[in-house]
Amino acid sequence: MLIEGKFTLKAPIQEVWDFLLEPGTIVSCIPGAEKMEAVDDKTWEGIIKDKVGIISVKLQFTQTFAEIDPPKHLKAVGRGSALGGLGTFSQESIVDLTEVAKDEVEVSYKSTVNLVGRLATFGERIMRAKVDSKGAEFTSNLQKKLMEVQSKKA
């Protein structure tokens, strides 16, 4: 499953970059994320709790920054499993920052999510739709947070 998109932010590229790398920023934007713990400055462990209608899912996951190329490129990989033997998932996300104008940054992201097991096969249409909407929620969270930080600074 591929989720991709881009948005622009009015901020200096370094500022956006620093924010992205700040411990916990990305993780805290994941919808339903709770109990986040930093293992080291590159790795977090946590639990996501979510619901698809009457189905409740609890995912245990680990997230690591695999590539860091400041202030332009970031790759995060994560893997986890759903409690109750419902399946496992892995994801690989690439975030690229491009300065489109002075103090204007285009953030483009590309996330490949793999679900394996019962959860994934229960209904491709539902899981895909749900992952899509969660992806959208994630990016809107990220955007919001970035704007919050900016407005605070301003």
Binding site: N114, T121, G123, E124
Partner: peptide
């Protein structure tokens, strides 16, 4: 490598 439609519904 994962079959996406393993049921008669899909």
């Amino acid at each position: 490598g994962m079959v996406l439609n393993p049921s008669f519904a899909d």
